[in-house]
Simulated scan of single mutants.
Amino acid sequence: MSGYLTTHILDTARGLPAEGINIALFKIENGERQKIAETVTNSDGRTNAPILPAEAFEVGQYELVFFCGEYLENHGLTGGNLKFLDDIPIRFGMDDPAAHYHVPLLLSPYGYSTYRGS
């Protein structure tokens, strides 16, 4: 069985899944970023399919970029003229070729957290 990568976004300020946020996935090699996938979150704050499915999975360094600024602005969560948070990059490594990696984003207007989920 080959590994794969999934993600989701929870809006912790509103207590809801974060729908309609664009996400890009980059592979990092020799310090260079190459975009390999992009998607948008559904009504459950998840992507409709793994952002990196088993058939495309490779171990290595990756970066997810969550484009949250517009979402925060649309929900009145920016708190001022300038967004405190806008694009949120999370760089991580995957070294088990058979594992399911899950990298969620817990989002609020002034902070975020992530973890390796299941």
Rank of each mutant, 00 (worst) to 15 (best):
M1G: 06
M1D: 06
S2L: 08
G3E: 03
G3K: 02
T6Q: 06
L10S: 10
L10F: 10
D11E: 07
D11N: 07
R14Q: 13
R14M: 13
G15K: 04
L16W: 00
A18G: 06
E19D: 13
E19T: 11
E19Y: 04
I21G: 06
N22H: 07
A24H: 05
A24Y: 03
A24M: 01
F26Q: 09
I28W: 13
E32M: 11
E32I: 08
Q34H: 01
Q34V: 15
A37T: 04
E38R: 07
T39N: 08
T41V: 04
T41M: 05
T41A: 02
N42S: 12
N42L: 05
T47S: 14
N48Q: 12
A49N: 06
P50L: 02
P50K: 04
L52Y: 00
P53N: 15
P53C: 15
A54C: 03
A54K: 11
E55A: 05
F57M: 07
F57T: 12
V59C: 12
V59T: 15
E63Y: 11
E63N: 03
F66D: 05
G69N: 11
Y71E: 08
N74E: 14
H75S: 03
H75T: 10
G76N: 07
L77A: 06
L77M: 14
N81S: 14
L82D: 14
K83T: 03
L85S: 09
I88K: 01
I88Y: 04
I90H: 01
M94R: 02
P97H: 03
H100L: 03
Y101V: 10
P104V: 11
P104L: 08
L105H: 08
S108A: 15
S108Q: 13
S108V: 00
S108C: 08
G111V: 00
Y112M: 07
Y112L: 09
S113M: 05
S113K: 03
T114H: 00
R116W: 10
G117E: 09
G117L: 09
